[in-house]
């Protein structure tokens, strides 16, 4: 991004802020529906000084991290296994294709029954949603190994473990990282959703409480915070991706362009 683009972007944000400030102040929209932007930011500032908010954030982010980690490990392990066992890919394809599009929120009633308003509910939803994102990418990735490279490995009589470590994983890594990036944002969405709908402690629950209490500015402030966290999660995973894949042509190409 060039400096000029950044200036335009900042101007765009400023315009957005100005409109969100002016519209309620001019009475175009009632303040009960949209408080002025400055008020939202002030409320957010105030919220950030409270212990409750930070503990809610801690709950949300630890559910996010734990769920993401479980989903990631499961998906990578299963993906590698499917690749290693002959015929497994063909045998599992239909099941994967059927289970993947099932909306994870369909599991909300089940989660409520099994775990109640607790971390377990959040984890069930997060893991289910994030798992498929990673698994699909792992399966793409391991399928992308060049057949010639595979035969080369076999002709040099490399062992299974060496082939996996030196050939399959490096090839699949960019795909796995894509899967992780997608899964990270999906996991964050589901973490907040579980809190919002089921009532597990966290940011989502606070939004729900603010809404039922009629604290409009707080609702907006917390949604803004959720957006900011979402951006931070995206940026963090992208920078991790860039660091891990610095050697990879896809990243190098991007940097050159």
């Amino acid at each position: 991004m060039t400096g000029r683009d950044a200036a335009y972007g900042a101007a765009g944000l400023a315009v957005l802020f100005g409109v969100a400030e002016a519209v309620p102040r001019l009475g175009l929209v009632s303040r009960d529906f949209l408080p002025p932007a400055s008020e939202i930011l002030r409320t957010l500032g105030h919220e950030l000084t409270t212990r409750q908010l930070w503990s809610a954030l801690g709950d949300t982010m630890s559910a996010w991290a734990l769920g993401l980690a479980i989903a990631f490990v499961l998906a990578v392990a299963l993906g590698t296994l499917i690749d290693a066992v002959p015929g497994a890919r063909a045998a599992t394809a239909s099941t994967v294709e059927f289970l993947r599009p099932i909306p994870s929120v369909a599991l909300i009633p089940l989660a409520t029954l099994l775990f109640g308003a607790d971390l377990g509910s959040s984890l069930l939803l997060i893991v289910y949603a994030a798992f498929w994102q990673v698994l699909i990418q792992v399966l793409y990735g391991v399928a992308d190994v060049d057949p010639v490279a595979r035969e080369t490995a076999r002709s040099y009589r490399l062992g299974h473990w060496t082939t996996l470590r030196r050939l399959v994983w490096p090839t699949a890594l960019p795909y796995v990282m894509t899967g992780l990036r997608l899964a990270a944002s999906v996991a964050f969405i589901l973490a907040v959703t579980a809190e919002l709908v089921i009532g597990s402690p966290g940011l989502g629950l606070r939004i729900q409480l603010a809404q039922s209490g009629g604290a409009v500015a707080t609702v907006y402030a917390l949604i803004t915070l959720a957006g900011i966290i979402g951006v931070v999660v995206n940026l963090a995973v992208r920078s991790l991706e860039r660091r891990l894949l610095a050697w990879h042509p896809s990243v190098r190409g991007e940097a050159a362009a």
């Binding site: 972007g9 979402g230 951006v231």
Partner: peptide, 25 residues
């Protein structure tokens, strides 16, 4: 260039949190 940061922000908001907000409005 002008809309990109704002759009990145809106995209990053988990869509379900819009439910209570839009209910309100």
């Amino acid at each position: 260039a002008a809309t990109e940061p704002a759009l990145e922000f809106f995209r990053a908001i988990p869509p379900p949190v819009l439910v209570p907000l839009i209910m309100l409005v």
